[in-house]
Design a protein around this nucleic acid. Sequence first.
DNA 1: TTCGGGCATGTGCACGGTCACACGCCGCGC
DNA 2: GCGCGGCGTGTGACCGTGCACATGCCCGAA
Lengths: 339, 339
Amino acid sequence: MSEETPKGRAPSIRDVARLAGVSHQTVSRVLNHHPSIRPETKQRVLDVMAELQYQPNRAARALVTSRSHTIGILAASSTQYGPASSIAAIEAAAREAGYWVSTANIDATDGRSISDGLAHLIAQGIEGLVVIAPQVRVFDTLAERSIDVPYVTLQSTGRDPEHALSVDQIAGARLATRHLIELGHRDIYHLAGPQDWIEAEARMRGFLDEMSASDVPTTAPILGDWTAEFGYYAGRELLTIRDFTAIFSSNDQMALGLMHAVRDAGLEIPRDISIIGFDDIPEAAHFWPPLTTVRQDFAELGRRCVALLVGTIDSSTLEHRGTIVPELIVRASTGAPAF
Amino acid sequence: MSEETPKGRAPSIRDVARLAGVSHQTVSRVLNHHPSIRPETKQRVLDVMAELQYQPNRAARALVTSRSHTIGILAASSTQYGPASSIAAIEAAAREAGYWVSTANIDATDGRSISDGLAHLIAQGIEGLVVIAPQVRVFDTLAERSIDVPYVTLQSTGRDPEHALSVDQIAGARLATRHLIELGHRDIYHLAGPQDWIEAEARMRGFLDEMSASDVPTTAPILGDWTAEFGYYAGRELLTIRDFTAIFSSNDQMALGLMHAVRDAGLEIPRDISIIGFDDIPEAAHFWPPLTTVRQDFAELGRRCVALLVGTIDSSTLEHRGTIVPELIVRASTGAPAF
DNA sequence: TTCGGGCATGTGCACGGTCACACGCCGCGC
DNA sequence: GCGCGGCGTGTGACCGTGCACATGCCCGAA
């Protein structure tokens, strides 16, 4: 080994200092872009750093500054398209802003898991928290543990609008519902998401709002679990009634299950029944028939989320955040009802 | 504030020590489950810890032990079902084993992004690395940067079998291909994944192996990009030829696109053309028709991955790892060819 | 009795950074 | 000529933990 440093350890600022003929503090100043350093000195230090392949020790820095530069993500259902997209976007935006990301995947139906995940993140000294999970339970845990870092929840404006950031779910749901109404549908069902997801609740509210605003008699929403499986069985149940011409599903996966059930019953989409989804997962364009749905910009959401969090951390200033409005994507699964 | 500790800081082991009437070292021993501590003393320390809501400082511990207890994940395409499932499984397994996880999402087509992501993880002092990405480029970067932590790549046995862990893609692909051959198909196309994904390569190899083993004339695989979109356009192209009765798609999304194209051409599945996919994403059971595919157990993969990594870190012992064999799921998208 | 050894605990230092403060030098105004 | 302030740099302490070593005690074997 032709190590420049005496020990087997990674080089420290003192090693750099010695080789550059300066004090360790000067090296620290170079690292932190302190203004008053002679360019000549600075260059010398930088050269030695490059030569030694010096890497600042995160732990040491975190210890003394008591700052971790880490944002935690508490995520449920992270295998689903929406959450996964948000996570990826947050991760990218955070890195851009000089922050690290640590994720804890939890089982949102298990209170213990929520608490554990949160403890896990807090133990890492996170400076900000993003919650991507059904909030109802998480909120309780959050309140209980009296979180002392800024946090943002990536769901619709629910119980804690101050911390919420989201695509406007209500507007999206109204968009979808209005689309069906404008096509002439009057008997419309809504297949909602799980009761304890605030996103699901918001979409349901949007549906109900738009229905009553258009003087269309509302039907009781069916509570689902986001899965195609559920959509399929819910569809089979519904079709024993057959007093409707359209269904608005709270996400694309359930819409897929619905379509499956409708076809099994020998009916045609959209001739007999129109179906509209929510999310616009990449596959939706290739469902049979291609699914009309509402698109959300998850990447933008992630970016704003980090901007808000970092703004709060760095300057205690709440950055103003506009609403992200979703977009209606009309494909072939919706049409005028046939009488 | 009725703080027990003098300063506004979080309590340290010394605060605990003072209140418990012991030395800081004794507290440290309690934390690390040192055997020789009187149960009485231990309990006293634990009581004070609980009272003070003491939390060990990770940074300080990492600084002195030079161990971060963190596993890094370098992931591409983490919004897709397979990678997302693996990540969630790894995260859970790692937490179980007392490790933390840090994820870097990269754009695998961009060499710079790979390198940045890797640097990002290394700067965090990760002790192990899991690579979930098309490996060809990543391998080069890995070699170039001479990674000094144990790593595992979550793809098929390719260039670096020593570090690879995966569901046996070749066996899975042979399973799928054999299924088609046994149904009586002779003219079979394979829609492969991107050239630089070793997984895609392995599935292609499995396809070719099985075809020649069964004395069926092979066709040149078509190289796709995993998306339903590509599957759709590839299907349209293929259908202008029509000299085949079955297609084996390297993943379920492309299979979905293929199905779309086949229906657009007025053909029926599986009467005119059989289609088989790979992955068994949760939606596959509700495609039209429900997709025959090959299921991989991602959760098991994640668990083994962490077990292997932690084994290597803790004892430098390579734990023996069996192969995970995928399972053929027969649904309605495949059938005997009609002549 | 003496001595070795294990147990339970304490003392001091090291880890690799940052921060507060001190220091020497130079230029400028009075 | 003297004091003052800013610039560039150095000195030492400190952050919260774990480790090596020291200490006192008790027990059993020589």
